[in-house]
């Protein structure tokens, strides 16, 4: 029996807030705010890095791209890279467990989220207390295994601080995999490892990319990890910028520009392979 369909009269959209111009206005307010209080200050900094006095216009840049500063830039990128790899390995391992094997998923996720409510400086302080002469490691073993005030210390600190940002996107992507696909792969005779390699991992790649991006950016910009846990040779760009600010603002400005451009180029290359705002929108 066909009851037919009831046709509602075409109604104009009523909501004022769906009204395109209002929404656009709200969007413009946000972008305007960002421009005035963030983009303009950064552009002003760009101007301050130029040398309008004696000598070449780009004099500060020749300093910023020389010897120790260039090495610091390389070190920053290298430390961020190592931290990203360590975080990804640990994050995938634990996220896989939480998503597919764990019985108390919510509890385990809760403890991943908990550190995010604690100021990052306090977490670095906790890591340093752990390895200090008064801390449990040295009290037990008589040595800190060379962790404190070293490259290892910086990496351990960054990993501790940024691990939640790595776990969440990977967990989300694993969680949203259709279990039927995994079952199908197993029914068709794939061993667990080959299911992981050919089905699960490719489907979770968006989460892995989001994690990598997030951890890399936050690690590269870190000031506190080298300041609290690193030695004098472990300074990263943020520390060098802060240091140079006290004696030469134009140099600090030039270093900021060099660092930001280097990071943006990396992000740009990355964006070529994966859309960032889509990736971060999943968070």
């Amino acid at each position: 029996m066909n009851l037919g369909t009831v046709r509602l009269p075409e109604m104009p959209s009523l909501s004022m807030l769906r009204d395109r111009s209002t929404a656009k206005l709200l969007m413009a307010i946000g972008l305007g705010w960002l421009t005035i209080f963030f983009i303009v200050p950064v552009v002003v900094l760009l101007f301050e890095s130029l040398n309008f006095g004696e000598g070449s216009l780009l004099e500060n840049y020749s300093t910023a791209l020389s010897g120790t500063y260039l090495r610091t830039l390389g070190r920053t990128m290298a430390y961020a890279f190592i931290t990203t790899i360590v975080c990804l390995v640990l994050a995938y391992w634990i996220a896989y467990y939480i998503a597919f094997k764990a019985k108390r998923q919510m509890l385990m996720l809760g403890f991943v989220l908990l550190p995010l409510w604690v100021a990052i400086i306090i977490r670095y302080f906790g890591v340093s207390l752990f390895f200090l002469p008064t801390g449990p490691v040295q009290q037990t073993f008589g040595t800190d295994f060379g962790v404190l005030f070293s490259t290892t210390g910086v990496i351990v600190g960054l990993t501790s601080a940024l691990l939640p940002f790595a776990i969440l996107p990977i967990y989300n992507s694993l969680q949203s995999i259709d279990e039927e696909l995994i079952n199908a792969s197993q029914v068709l005779g794939a061993r667990p490892m080959s299911t992981l390699r050919t089905v699960i991992f490719p489907l979770s790649l968006s989460g892995v990319i989001a994690s990598a991006l997030f951890v890399y950016i936050l690690a590269a910009g870190s000031f506190l990890a080298p300041a609290i846990l690193g030695g004098p040779g472990d300074f990263m760009m943020a520390n060098v910028i802060e240091q140079s600010f006290s004696y030469s603002i134009p140099l600090a400005a030039a270093l900021s520009v060099v660092f930001t451009v280097a990071l943006l180029i990396l992000i740009g290359i990355f964006n070529h392979y994966a859309n960032i705002s889509e990736v971060l929108g999943d968070l």
């Binding site: 963030f38 200050p41 900094l45 301050e48 910009g221 000031f223 760009m237 943020a238 802060e242 600090a252």
Partner: peptide
């Protein structure tokens, strides 16, 4: 994405 050090310096100036 931009290090908070840079935000701090830029904002102060």
């Amino acid at each position: 994405m931009i290090s908070p050090v840079i935000t701090g310096v830029a904002f102060l100036r």
